[in-house]
Design a binder for these strands. Sequence first.
DNA 1: GTAAATTAAATCGCACGCGATTAAATAACA
DNA 2: TGTTATTTAATCGCGTGCGATTTAATTTAC
Lengths: 152, 152
Amino acid sequence: MDNSSKDDLLQLEKFLCFSIYSAGHAFNRVYKPLLDNLGLTYPQYLVMVTLWQQDNQSVRSIGSKLYLESSTLTPLLKRLEANGLVSRKRDPEDERSVRVTLTEAGKALRDKAEEVPPCILDATGLDIETAKRLNRDLRTMRDQMEAVGQKI
Amino acid sequence: MDNSSKDDLLQLEKFLCFSIYSAGHAFNRVYKPLLDNLGLTYPQYLVMVTLWQQDNQSVRSIGSKLYLESSTLTPLLKRLEANGLVSRKRDPEDERSVRVTLTEAGKALRDKAEEVPPCILDATGLDIETAKRLNRDLRTMRDQMEAVGQKI
DNA sequence: GTAAATTAAATCGCACGCGATTAAATAACA
DNA sequence: TGTTATTTAATCGCGTGCGATTTAATTTAC
């Protein structure tokens, strides 16, 4: 392989993975001031969103929706509990599981959180249709990669 | 706003940010076994790619290309140095800067690294055209969000 | 020409994120 | 039934990632 082909292969701008990596950071930076008002970090916000959609879930269930391990979630959930947003209790039906439920404060936070998503779409500068297409393509790709990961 | 609209607004699957967040994790999982062979983490790999593209850069320069702060890069670069892949030296022209240069081992690693990108494209399950479009859209969006961040 | 402002790295504290391991509970099965 | 296998959280160690701050060097302003 000659040098120009080599250069072509290892150019950062051509890395789809880098575009995703850096876009993720960009999202974080835009989200941060908004989430600071809610007293949440971005991953904490995602956990709260899953609980607003469906309360009283196990750690496992939250993890499977967010693609996160218990080693990530356990300390995060403890912080949410310390902040009075959720409670964690062993499931009497199955003592291996921990049920995570919203407190009143956790439920109440939802109203303030409603205001966040529209701000974000603005910041992307995308029209709705492009955003939807991008979202669909990314989910398809993610699911494909998760499947490949399982096979190995 | 009625409840169905509320539910609509806070559904995880509709969050573009979440698709990017989870796609980033999926990439990481696919990359990990490949990068383990090179003895690199994913961010370390990105730093090496920028140095393979252009050797002898300042920390600042690397950071601006990868959108990373010195607080992230300094310890990372020290690890790369400890592993014998780069050297770090104050710039005699401007003692505030640190120049990062590839060692022979760092240069040599490039050959093995060449094999990584094609594996990854396979794993995404995307055809080249879709991958290119996705890449372009993401970069546009990222740049827009970075610009919005600057304004605030 | 010196004081003030700016710039570049480094440092520190905090919060992820995961692999590997552990402990406890439950399920499966001979 | 009793043993083994599996499942679920939790723990630990390591490596990001960043905001805030610090230190040192350089530039700007006056």
